[in-house]
Design a protein around this nucleic acid. Sequence first.
DNA 1: GCTAATCTCTGTATCGATTCAGACTGGATC
DNA 2: GATCCAGTCTGAATCGATACAGAGATTAGC
Lengths: 354, 354
Amino acid sequence: MKPTLQAVADAVGVSRSTVSNAYSRPDQLSATLRERILDAARQLGYPGPNPTARSLRRGFVGSIGVLFTSQLSYAFTDPFAVRFLAGVGAAAERHGTSMLLVPLPRAVTDARQAVENAAVDGFCVYCVADEEWALDVIRQRGLPFVSTAARDDASADERFVGIDERAAARSAAAHVAGLGHRRVALLADSVLPDTPAGPLTLAGVDQVPHPTTRGRLSGFADAFAEVGVGWAELTLVNVPGNSRPAAAAAIAGLFDQPAPPTAVLAGSDVLALGVLDALAARPAHDRPTVSVTGFDDVPEAAAAGLTTVRQPAEEKGRIAAELLLDPPADAAAGHVLLPTALVVRGSTGPVPRS
Amino acid sequence: MKPTLQAVADAVGVSRSTVSNAYSRPDQLSATLRERILDAARQLGYPGPNPTARSLRRGFVGSIGVLFTSQLSYAFTDPFAVRFLAGVGAAAERHGTSMLLVPLPRAVTDARQAVENAAVDGFCVYCVADEEWALDVIRQRGLPFVSTAARDDASADERFVGIDERAAARSAAAHVAGLGHRRVALLADSVLPDTPAGPLTLAGVDQVPHPTTRGRLSGFADAFAEVGVGWAELTLVNVPGNSRPAAAAAIAGLFDQPAPPTAVLAGSDVLALGVLDALAARPAHDRPTVSVTGFDDVPEAAAAGLTTVRQPAEEKGRIAAELLLDPPADAAAGHVLLPTALVVRGSTGPVPRS
DNA sequence: GCTAATCTCTGTATCGATTCAGACTGGATC
DNA sequence: GATCCAGTCTGAATCGATACAGAGATTAGC
């Protein structure tokens, strides 16, 4: 059994308080006594104050949680998420705070418990799916949090960092529309929960539950509405999961249809790269010329020559953590909108004449 | 002030124990009473048992620490580290355990404190630099840990997962030696601590403090010793930090020297890619033909056509976490050696005749 | 009908520290 | 010589739960 602080106190013949002070408040006792205590502690093999006990008494933990509403391993697979984490990590480092990555079980009840049991002082919520229940739990616990997806019902004092998803998506779509494309497919991850991969008919974009996805699809639709292409004329394709293979599989059949799309607007670079994969997989003589756009501008996008919308990934993570760890006095400053930019590369071009 | 478990007990008129049981041991009380308690808790806004208090009493935390003996942001920059983390994450997920990423301040005293204060049940130590002090602290705390770098002084019961660095490196070097290269540069991250970038003279490879680096350099040296090229004839190049730009900067001057190396063996893919960057940065007419090898086989390596040594990254992370969370009864099983494979791609070729 | 087993629930001890009001000592101040 | 003060150290209260032995009430077994 490891000795406790009490054991050290007994060994030196001082009170528990004094030993505690030797560790946490050196100015509260004479240097000589402090040395004596530290020596005794070394001799006894006292590992220093127990972090958990300390947290309990102090009322804070010294670590922030990062919540991915999906598999934890996903967080490391998605290049955008990784860069986001890097940003959070940089801020955490600056504040001497640890990051707790909490895996969420599939079952909602278990997932709620996971959030309830996380020993953290606050959460950065990186949203990849519907997260409302998670925010409920966090609020219930009375913990501060920063969200990265704009929600309609967000109260004014909720901290947020993100982009104008709709405007950003619109810029990409306007570029494609400007190139003359009118037969267009929109590709998104988990348009509706538990829906199979492939084309999907939806009365309107407002049916999409996930705010980020809804925002991007709205932006795409906006740009095409402007050139006279209505929502019903756009092909919406669902991908279950944000991965290249999933996107490739979901889109594959589309190009063999009577009037295939001449452009595919994807909700993320990962999906867009999957589309490029699907195209590359076809024999050269049967490979349609399709314009493809992504979203995020992950490192791989540049290498693949993908036209995409850039958003500052690390910055997003860094600011999310900063907002959490060092909340601005002004509530308005707690709502940060980051800039985006359309990055045009080789993956988009004019409609081929055929 | 959030209500405590006691408050709920009072509201319902039962003992604290019973409320506790309602949460943690539903089988210890009648279903009806349990419902009554949970209802009251909801009404009062009780956030559920305080995770810290619970951890203190239970004696464990439910999370494992991942220790990077370097900047935390590095962990997300190095593709190999990211894949390692993904593996740890997958295992953590399986066990319902969280991962705590602990940033380490530069100053050793502060860094020690960070490890002392981490609320975790054990550590996966991903080594990027000398870690001996960290292991000391962990041992002192009496926490279990798994290391990924083989150390000479490791006691038999210490858990470990890694590769035979020396043999793996040797395979790469043997390939290059077989192609006829004799003027060769070895590139490694932080050969000696706090040493400037660039060529470095070292009496022998045993002077390198970091076991992983030492292992790989030894392997390189082994292969060349076999074809009659001694340690002194090899050019050792130090890179401060495992990054492409750093590697490019460190190697840049080398090709303008009288008898430039015809091959560069790098201690990691990231460094090797940096070498390729440095070469690509030169004007075409002044670009020497240099064989380059890496180590790890990160995703980018394939795209760049880099010859490298593959080691299973996620597997390493997964097994590290498994060894920690589910220790094998047999001590020998706690020491896992993963397979490696030489992957020959376009970045290596015969010595050009000039 | 009596003992044993089962089900619920309670009370007390405990996890390992931090906090804060105050006791004590030995100068400095006037 | 009384007062004040700064510097040290102590003790009791507290953070918010869980563990475990055991008290009562029921049910089961024979």
